[in-house]
Design a protein around this nucleic acid. Structure first.
Lengths: 351, 351
DNA sequence: AATGCCATGGAAACCGTTTTCCCAATTATG
DNA sequence: CATAATTGGGAAAACGGTTTCCATGGCATT
């Protein structure tokens, strides 16, 4: 280094320095610079040193677009997800992003909530020649658009059912079955269910588990005990449930997003958990631990699912030969909190 | 379309189609295809149609790297942030990502938790010629590295103090002052404070507000009432506070991350809020509403801060002339919950 | 009918790298 | 000492677009 740094020699602010400048400055050919910077063999130590010196001197950073030009690709992974911001997605996204970064890739977020956005992002990802695409609890509007992606890049999915795409899931049906069984064993006979609409396969399977647990126990499955809500859940829904001649003694929520909303309504209605109402949920998010009492919940292995999804995708990217097409199920566990207890003998009336 | 789609003509799977193929297929020159696809004038409607037909037929998507080559840039924004996943960051990141996407840019996440990562991501962003970089509650290890970014791209920051970088902040000092005042007005004289270490400027300012409120009220500022913890907060910290001869009757947490942890410890220690202990927090995250009672808190305008930060950055990107260098302060508000009440006359002892 | 002017579209330069040759110089071999 | 083998490094051809400029043909103008 020494004192020969002539920073002031370029009055033109924006004159981008290119590999050619470095070559000139080091007194070698362009290709030599490239070889040095990419650790290619066949360059003498002396030349290497000269080149590196010039690189440092100008703070030269090769331009990614140029380097990606010849089919070489740039280690990015597109992340398709719904354009929402509930606690489940936030948590999952956090894990996914970190896993992607740790694997040495850049995540390219594609928040999709309309067919137009879907088309836009499919184009964008194709044009950027991403290494792969991960669907995370994502909507799929046009199978055709998705197929364009699938045709020309690696794909994997987390909790999104797309034909022909390897997927990470949890045992939605069985674990919901288990937790409803748990409520039934405690003595509950009227169990309500709050669930998002059934456009997602995993949500559908959860409801299926709820239904099976009831029927196997000889309890009726009643549509009016099931509310299909998400953001739209309101305190009216709760009061409607409580107004039944046999009001539920337990409520199961198919997602923590809904559970957290329902919890607030129950609390403000003065309905105590678990004395007046047992309460179970699905997801097991950390933020849900703030509910009092802590919920009895189906805890999904969120982090493991994120990591496994990314691992699988990256594996398929880096070993295109033995591509993994399986569906992989990471089991959830039932985490007991204090929110589920035997029902009161005399039921509960709001008046 | 019709039936002349000869999909089977290419046994070579990966033969990428380029603009040249489209030109050949449409029977025009390469430049013509480019002009059509970029809506340039001077092409007759007939030719346009022919070209678009060929484009559709091959599902042609121009390659982003090639198009970015000549100084044209690709609408990406780098997001520097600490490599952590607390509820505050998750929420802020969600807002930031969405704002960036809505502005028509791609967010490029750079989770930095070491000088090496910082250097790596600085290089990566420079090499990708990002349109701008946004720092979000970020660590800064080497000012020199950051300066390299600042020198060659637009930058802005949210709650990160970096010399020469426009920043969005909230009134940390004043609003902490206000909420501590509130506690003092209620009659509290021993107020503990849980805060992360002071490496972040805004955290430092919050502690300053706490200190000023005490001193102005004629109360002593005692180091032993201040615990510098984040992930490391443990139930021992709570019991230590309670073991003082004059144990605190109120605890203020400088972040919701800490507040949520502290809340769980208080709950499991059987310390009731607000009967045994008043409890105030800073952040006002939605998930904190699940605490019972809902916390009295300094609610930051998270979404507004994210949007304003992105707006400012995008503005500077798109109007490089009148670049905005100000510090902008979006005020927080005190949101009253039920967690702060007058202290018990007889204090509280754990034995 | 000769000239000038648009409108259209093509040829080629360019962007900044990597990569493939190939040449020259050095060293080893007969 | 002449020749072959090896090595370091350079020239140029990709890569896939955009953009500039120029050529052509048809039309209107005098």
């Amino acid at each position: 280094m020494g004192n020969n740094e002539k920073k002031t020699s370029l009055p033109e602010e924006k004159q981008n320095i290119t590999i050619a400048h470095i070559a000139a400055s080091a007194g070698v050919a362009i290709s030599t610079v490239s070889k040095v910077m990419n650790e290619r063999p066949g360059i003498s130590p002396g030349t290497r040193k000269k080149v590196w010196a010039a690189v440092k001197k100008f703070n030269f950073t090769p331009q990614a677009s140029a380097r990606e030009l010849g089919g070489r690709n740039g280690k990015t992974i597109g992340i398709f997800s719904a354009f929402i911001q509930d606690p489940y997605c936030s948590a999952m996204m956090g894990y996914v992003f970190h896993a992607v970064c740790l694997a040495g890739y850049f995540p390219l977020l594609c928040p999709v909530d309309s067919p137009e956005q879907e088309a836009f992002y499919v184009n964008e990802l194709l044009s950027r020649r991403v290494s792969g695409v991960l669907f995370v609890s994502s909507d799929v509007f046009s199978q055709e658009e998705i197929d364009r992606l699938v045709a020309s890049t690696e794909v994997a999915s987390i909790q999104t059912d797309i034909p022909g795409v390897p997927v990470i899931n949890t045992n939605d049906e069985e674990s919901t079955y288990e937790i409803i069984r748990h409520l039934i064993t405690l003595g509950h006979e009227n169990i309500a269910c709050l669930t998002p609409d059934l456009r997602y396969g995993n949500v559908k399977r959860r409801l299926e588990g709820y239904r099976r647990a009831l029927l196997e126990a000889g309890l009726p499955y009643r549509e009016e005990y099931v509310k299909y809500r998400d953001l739209s859940l309101s305190s009216r829904d709760i009061s409607e449930l409580m107004a039944f001649s046999h009001p539920p003694t337990a409520i199961h929520c198919a997602t923590d997003e809904i559970a957290q909303r329902a919890y607030l309504y129950l609390r403000s209605a003065g309905i105590r958990i678990p004395e007046d109402m047992s309460f179970t949920t699905f997801d097991g998010l950390e933020s849900s631990q703030l509910m009092t009492p802590a919920p009895t919940t189906v805890a999904q292995p969120l982090k493991a699912m994120a990591e496994e999804g990314v691992r699988m995708l990256v594996h398929n990217i880096e070993h295109p030969t033995d591509t993994d097409l399986a569906e992989k199920i990471l089991p959830s566990i039932i985490r007991l909190g204090g929110s589920a207890a035997p029902p009161r003998k005399n039921g509960l009336s709001l008046r």
